[in-house]
Design a protein around this nucleic acid. Structure first.
Lengths: 149, 149
DNA sequence: TATATTTGTAACCAAATTTGTTACGTATTC
DNA sequence: GAATACGTAACAAATTTGGTTACAAATATA
């Protein structure tokens, strides 16, 4: 997987920290170390997934669409998956269409990789954006913006 | 992730089915729907990981280095990871080096993504190449080469 | 109303990645 | 010695990814 999942989580944690105040793509991009347009792209995806709202115009920016406790990393993962290829690209494999191992390998692999992905999903579902924010707080040295909040 | 994991699993399942008979890269490539050189590359990686042996010369090819029951999908996953970027590329994210959310986000995300990856690994460890082969047998229609073995 | 701000999105570019392919030296069997 | 088959380097095409510019649309505010 690419960096989108990590950056998206970064964005959401920042928004959780901002608590209701819209945060501009410029601020988010600066924090995440990327370009504002990249942030807006991600925010668009997150918005389609119902995780954030965004406001145009002066003083605008992105906000969480619901409490940070009710947004899991699985939600983020799913939102990002809309844009990305599968984790285990079984289907893009091109097995021999003949009647041999190749043809059925595809569905077999899907069945066998499935539980692994499910396990990962379950683990991701157990972590909320609020927890990410809280964990961030622990790691933040005192005196940093956000260390107290 | 790319198709390498799926194709590598395909190769190993085929070798499990061949039971001791070396299988050439050409045969494997034909079954997996790719190029013999691609197969040899993957076999090289699997060989470095100690999962297969290979024999040069006429009648040569690849063989499992140990019983198929003792090769898990986690072994395959790990072998492939040697060649690939991380599943969740937290580290290649470029967060702001200042004293703010960005700097610590990296280690926080690593800590939070870790359990998800562990969960996936555990699930992969629970599946052996022998099981893949067995599962394949179920899906194979009768009369196909390998349907009986 | 006019201006400044900010999003949404298209378009494009450069870099990296991935897969396929050719080529060729080396090892092994017959 | 010929045929087979691997190991690997080198290269090309296609795809993906992240960054950037550009600009219309929306919104707050003076």
């Amino acid at each position: 997987m690419n960096t989108r999942f990590a950056v998206a989580t970064h964005i959401l944690a920042y928004l959780a920290h901002a608590e209701g105040q819209p945060v501009s793509s410029e601020v988010l991009a600066s924090s995440a170390g990327t370009h504002p347009v990249v942030v807006r792209r991600l925010v668009s995806t997150l918005r389609e997934a119902g995780l954030v709202h965004s406001q145009r115009g002066a003083g605008g920016g992105a906000l969480l669409a619901r409490p940070a406790t009710e947004i899991s990393l699985l939600d983020v993962f799913r939102a990002m998956q809309q844009t990305e290829p599968d984790l285990f690209q079984v289907s893009s494999t091109n097995p021999n269409a003949h009647c041999d191992l190749g043809r059925v390998m595809q569905e077999t692999l899907e069945g066998l990789f499935g539980p692994a992905i499910d396990a990962m999903r379950t683990a991701l579902a157990a972590v909320s954006v609020a927890q990410v924010k809280q964990e961030l707080g622990k790691h933040l040295p005192q005196g940093c913006p956000g260390a107290s909040g």
